[in-house]
Design a protein around this nucleic acid. Structure first.
Lengths: 132, 132
DNA sequence: CTGGCTGCAAATCTTTTGCATCCTG
DNA sequence: CAGGATGCAAAAGATTTGCAGCCAG
């Protein structure tokens, strides 16, 4: 959590709880997942606070907002560039830490200034393979 | 549109209109984009019909449901494997037809059966570069 | 004919917003 | 003490659903 101090956030108890929940979390939780997890210790915490905190964190580079799930946004505290392996059945998302050297010919970039890339790998996880 | 016949769809006038709108469309339209475009010729067409048709098409492999846009689903009639170049400012999405040979070491696939991949390239498009 | 499709409205789900109050820096 | 943060409720969007009537195969 120390790593969030330099982001210039106002550290309220609610935020500290959210930050602590996110820290090292590999579940790619949605706003609702976070809200539910918080409700135990902060029965009064509202969605506004969750979303507000996530938005601020995102803007300051503290979390990544993932668009992998068609139904809702998910958040990833691991802001180092990495990719995702997605089970098409159970929707589980797993981090992949590997750099891909994507050699994109200039004529394909349409004059864009490229900033980054994200690779999604789709497949069926071992569990779902068994149960089918 | 001929290509949709073999999907086993019941071809109603509404569906034919949607199919014709999607055919060759490179705009990656959302359900609302499609609904609005349809409203001209079919003032009575409902969202239910648009979503129903898109869902059926998706399940039969007639369109891809893109999760690139955080705010809504977008649809791509180009079902051939391809990737996307996204402007981080104006959110424009451009197709990239190139195959990337992603060599993923076995120890990173967590036992998944890999089915496909999708690469998102993020950057700033020429227009947005100028206007900033 | 008949099951799938349409249209409309209501419902659901996720995310955003307004506003009065609160509290960190 | 000021400006940002919180909590609550209402609003806004996107998508889904229930259902009666309709029509393509």
């Amino acid at each position: 959590m120390e790593k969030y101090k330099h982001l210039g956030l106002k550290l309220t108890p609610q935020r500290l709880a959210i930050l602590s929940y996110l820290d090292g979390n590999k579940e790619h939780p949605s706003a609702e997942d976070i809200y539910k997890a918080m409700s135990k210790d902060f029965p009064t915490m509202s969605f506004a606070t969750v979303y507000n905190t996530l938005e601020t964190l995102r803007d300051k580079g503290g979390v990544l907002e993932l668009t992998i799930d068609p139904n809702k946004k998910r958040y990833d505290p691991n802001t180092a560039a990495h990719h995702h392996l997605i089970c098409m059945k159970c929707k589980r998302i797993i981090d992949i830490h590997k750099e891909f050297s994507l050699n994109i010919p200039d004529e394909m970039t349409e004059g864009f200034d490229l900033v980054g890339n994200h690779v999604e790998l789709y497949g069926i996880c071992p569990k779902c393979k068994k149960s089918s």
